[in-house]
Design a protein around this nucleic acid. Sequence first.
DNA 1: ATAATGACTTTCA
DNA 2: TTGAAAGCCATTA
Length: 103
Amino acid sequence: MSDRYTRIYAAVRKVPRGRVATYGQIAIVAGLPGHARQVGYALHALTVSTGVPWQRIVNAKGMISLQPMRGGVNQRMLLESEGVKFDAAGRVSLMKFRWKKRR
DNA sequence: ATAATGACTTTCA
DNA sequence: TTGAAAGCCATTA
């Protein structure tokens, strides 16, 4: 496993409960600015057994980039359990649940 | 080594 | 907010 992945995972774990973060943000926090894609790639390799709250990571639109279901549970359900609200379009209000400050 | 792929982002409209 | 186009980079074949 590369250090990159570890950094990404660490960044994801930093995300507080009831909050969501974008790939770009995670990339920055992980120390890999501009590597948003790789963040997604790294998370793709993850599973529910990794212990990483990957469900808190969404794309810039606030939508779940992955298929509706993955790892056996709905990402949406998990987030709702944390207090994150979804709209009819299946998105989270980034301007309300965005982790940290913007940019 | 090159080519293709992908859980993305940013900018312009 | 959404949509299209360009950019970026690691992983896989």
